[in-house]
Computed example of a mutant assay.
Amino acid sequence: MTTLSETRIENRYRVQPNHANNYESLHGGTLMKWMDEVGAMAAMRFAGESCVTAGVTELDFQQPIPIGETARIEAYAYDAGRTSVRVRIRAWRENPRTGEAALTTEASFTFIAIDADGSPVAVPDVTVETDEERDLRDVARDAEH
């Protein structure tokens, strides 16, 4: 069984002018795309199958990520249904020179595991073994309400 910690994926993207909106910060749609990609990787690591996006419970933009900074995105699977995987995704703005970071965006995505024919397939239960994993799961579940 895969533990919550084993599903954690983190990726960084440098925000370039072609990623920006009229306010010289990362376009929200671009950030959503990057979050979806990292979230899908966490879901696939958990399910052991390809996964497709089924929904987004909430997506809260708290502050912008300006051109020249880095978008750091973290995702982990925290809950599962019969064929679905719930993934918590968070993004930070990060100064590439100092590493100073601030949380900018939080979301929960639902992915469906599919087989080679595109049909939904069963997923295992999320295994939580440590206090840190319990805390991560609880924070993700609480954010849904």
Rank of each mutant, 00 (worst) to 15 (best):
S25R: 01
T53P: 14
R72A: 13
K33L: 06
S108R: 10
D117T: 14
M32G: 12
N22S: 03
V38S: 08
G29Q: 06
I114C: 07
W92K: 09
V15D: 01
E58N: 14
E10N: 07
Y78A: 03
W34H: 05
S5P: 04
L31K: 04
Y76A: 01
P124G: 15
F111Y: 15
V15N: 00
A107Q: 07
M41P: 00
R86H: 14
R137F: 01
N95Q: 02
C51V: 14
E74Y: 07
R134L: 02
N18S: 08
G55V: 05
R134F: 03
T83Q: 12
E69Q: 14
C51H: 12
S50D: 10
A107Y: 04
S84P: 05
A47I: 13
S25W: 00
A75K: 06
I114E: 06
T3K: 01
S25F: 01
T7L: 11
R12Y: 11
N11Q: 15
D60C: 02
E10C: 09
T83P: 08
A91T: 11
H19L: 03
V121G: 12
P96T: 13
V139N: 00
R86W: 09
A140M: 04
E10F: 08
T110K: 10
P120Y: 04
A80Q: 09
A143H: 00
I65P: 05
D115S: 07
W92T: 05
D131K: 05
L26G: 06
E100F: 02
L136A: 15
M32Q: 13
V123N: 12
L59V: 13
